[in-house]
Computed example of a mutant assay.
Amino acid sequence: MGGELVQVFLAGDVMLGRGVDQILPHPGDASLPEAYVTDARTYVELAQAANGTIPRPAPFSWPWGEALAVLDTAAPNVRILNLETSVTQSDDIAPGKAVHYRMHPANLPCLAAARPDVCALANNHVLDYGRQGLAETLDSLAAAGLRTAGAGRDLDEARRPAVVPLPGCRRLLVFSLGMASSGIPHTWAATAQRSGIDFSDEASDATAAEVVGRIRQVKRSGDLVVVSIHWGSNWGYAVPGDQIRFAHALVDGGADAVHGHSSHHPRPLEVYRGHPVLYGCGDLIDDYEGIGGHEQYRDDLRLLYFVSLEPDTGRLDHARLVPLQAHRMRLRHASRKDAERVHEVLARTSRTFGTHITRAPEGTLTVHPPGRGA
């Protein structure tokens, strides 16, 4: 069939709740059920103390900053992100959790500013305000015309892939699932009679086989498949063996790309049998400025991932990564020195997977499939 490459934008955690919600035009209730911070505006104050004044209210486009121009220039066919917040005014606080995220539904134009085609929802914050909050989240996103995957009013809906049309009557299918290793409570699992997310207790062979079975049921000739997974710890570069085996099983079974997230900083990349596996995309938008404790990971540095796939095979032609920095709750281009740091760390940690990453003078990183590139 041939045709042009299909470029997919993949983003890590987009956390528009809590402090970010407070700087937008319609801030919700600022009270928080946290042990140390009881007012979401405190996170704004911490960010301002670290880097300077943040406008309040800020325009809806503010958190995305210079990322929007990058997205417009790249013009990807599909934009996928992990929306790690509830979109609700519910006060039905999920018990036993240390951190809770919600954004006011009236602030959804902030999310829409990035024009996402799919919001992955199977993560450890989408039910922070209970099943009532999840219902309002699903209704609000649907009313805004935003596709979702990974959560639903029952298990069938939670497992249903989002479908994005591609040129030439093709489709891109997005499956979203979350695992206990990312801190998702078992009680958040959707069932035939209960709302929730597509939840897996572990990255097991049996779970991989079940997901592959679902892929094969719906994937048609010409379709591409992305599996978006919320898994693993927040910090560190090591990738557990079960995650590697799980990702490989998905690719062997028909997935064209694996979109991993949960870590607060980027984790290694792999090109397995010609297909991209992103083990952890890192945070993209959050309210963590001014919070200390893990400075060695430089979680203020963020990446935009542009993955270009061959339309017939789904194999990676190349991936382009754009380093950004969170500053005053807004994304800006990373400095040359910081881009060099991102390149050094990502190239070093990905080398064990045989991944080759180069850096252009302006800072953009390129991932080359084995046998290609400089």
Rank of each mutant, 00 (worst) to 15 (best):
M1R: 05
G2R: 07
L5M: 06
V8H: 08
V8D: 13
F9R: 15
L10N: 07
G12S: 04
M15K: 08
G17V: 12
Q22E: 05
D29F: 07
V37S: 13
Y43A: 04
Y43P: 05
V44E: 15
A49S: 12
G52A: 11
T53G: 04
I54D: 00
P59E: 13
F60R: 00
V70C: 01
T73I: 11
A75N: 15
A75H: 03
P76Y: 09
V87H: 06
Q89F: 02
D91Q: 11
D92P: 06
K97S: 07
P105G: 09
L108Y: 10
A114T: 00
P116C: 04
P116A: 05
P116F: 00
V126G: 01
V126H: 05
Y129P: 00
Y129V: 03
R131A: 01
D139F: 01
T148M: 13
A149W: 09
G152W: 03
D154N: 13
L155I: 08
D156T: 09
D156C: 06
A158I: 12
V163Q: 06
C169A: 06
C169Y: 08
V174Y: 01
F175Q: 04
L177M: 14
G178T: 12
M179H: 04
P185G: 07
S195T: 01
G196P: 02
G196Q: 04
I197V: 13
F199W: 08
D201K: 07
D201Q: 06
V227A: 12
H230P: 08
S233G: 04
N234C: 08
P240E: 03
G241W: 03
Q243I: 14
I244Q: 12
H248T: 00
H248G: 02
L250Y: 02
V251C: 10
D252C: 00
A255M: 10
D256P: 01
D256I: 01
V258F: 01
P266D: 09
P266C: 09
R267A: 10
P268Y: 10
L269N: 02
V271Y: 10
V271A: 07
Y272W: 11
R273Q: 13
V277K: 04
L278V: 11
Y279H: 10
D283W: 02
D286W: 07
Y288E: 12
G290E: 15
G293P: 14
E295Y: 06
E295F: 15
Q296T: 15
Y297R: 03
D299H: 06
R302N: 09
L303C: 01
F306Y: 14
T313W: 07
G314W: 15
H318C: 13
L324T: 12
A326T: 11
A326N: 02
H327S: 07
R330E: 14
R332Q: 14
R336V: 12
A339Y: 03
E340N: 10
R341K: 13
E344T: 13
L346N: 14
R348T: 08
R351K: 11
A360H: 08
H368R: 00
P369T: 06
P370H: 15
G373Q: 07
